[in-house]
Simulated assay, not measured.
Amino acid sequence: MNILLFGAGGNIGSAIAGELLSRGHTVTGVTRSGKAEAAEGRAGFTAVAGDATDAATVARLSAQGYDLVASAVGPRVGAEDDRKIIVGAAKALIEGLTRSGVRRLVVLGGAGSLETAPGVRVIDSPHFPEMWKNNALAQIEALGLYRETTGLDWTFISPAKLIEAGERTGSYRKGGEQLVVDAEGNSRISYADYAVAFADEVEQSNAVQSRINVAY
């Protein structure tokens, strides 16, 4: 596939780019600086500059013959407005792809809206970290925007409650609206294995117009 990936320079975005490239896909990585050091120099990868929160930019870039658009866009923690980046990107992706005619969109989501019990979300816990609350609220709003659109074949992939650096095992479990946890009640996944799940969805399209959750 020929894939346009917004947010290719971050920890998760670079892992996704690497996984897609390892499977033989061609990836154009979009970052604000036009640089994506983790993937630059690899066969099949090109880095370009672009703003995922600008619908005109999304439309212009995605109109260049891509089979699918992916997004791992996120704010710099503690340095940028979460809603401006996350909700702004969701709005721009929806509008821009509608203009360009690309229907398939796979995006990095958040875990805050996943249920830990019927009607109880991760974000509702009194122990939910305050520093991540605005990010979670923005992801919840973005998910609502995707659910309202009918013109895109979108998939919103929520990670585990904890996503961090770690090895690539190639294994994960997949759920829907409920937080996936292990036998001890923990919910975690590495960047590398989240990228495996992301690439699987890119290739298989098993969760069109829905949200999934991936964890160990």
Rank of each mutant, 00 (worst) to 15 (best):
N2K: 15
N2Q: 15
N2H: 15
I3E: 07
L4T: 03
G9L: 07
G10E: 04
G10F: 03
N11F: 14
S14T: 13
G18D: 11
L20C: 04
R23E: 11
G24M: 04
T26H: 10
G29Y: 02
V30R: 06
G34Q: 05
G34S: 05
G34E: 08
E37C: 00
E37M: 05
E37S: 14
E40N: 10
R42Q: 14
A43T: 14
F45H: 03
F45N: 02
G50R: 10
D51E: 15
T53N: 12
T53W: 13
V58K: 11
V58E: 12
R60I: 11
R60P: 11
L61A: 14
S62M: 08
A63C: 13
Q64N: 14
Q64K: 15
V73K: 07
G74H: 09
V77P: 10
E80K: 01
R83A: 07
K84P: 00
V87E: 04
A89Y: 01
A89S: 15
A89I: 01
L93Q: 11
G101A: 12
L105T: 08
V106G: 09
G109N: 10
G110E: 06
G110M: 05
A111Q: 13
S113A: 15
L114T: 08
A117M: 12
P118F: 01
G119R: 13
V120Q: 10
D124Y: 01
S125D: 04
S125T: 05
S125Q: 13
H127C: 00
H127G: 00
F128I: 03
N135V: 00
Q139E: 06
I140K: 08
A142Y: 00
G144L: 03
L145D: 10
R147Y: 00
E148L: 06
L152R: 02
W154E: 04
S158L: 05
S158W: 02
A160M: 12
A160N: 10
L162S: 13
I163F: 13
E164C: 08
G166Y: 14
R168Q: 13
G170C: 12
Y172H: 05
R173Q: 11
K174Y: 01
G175W: 09
G176R: 02
L179N: 04
V180K: 03
D182P: 07
E184Q: 14
E184I: 01
E184Y: 03
N186Y: 10
R188E: 12
Y191S: 09
A192H: 05
A192V: 07
Y194N: 01
F198P: 09
A199M: 08
A199F: 04
D200Y: 03
E201N: 06
Q204S: 12
Q204N: 11
N206M: 02
N206W: 09
Q209G: 00
Q209M: 01
Q209Y: 00
Q209H: 07
S210L: 07
A215T: 11
A215L: 07
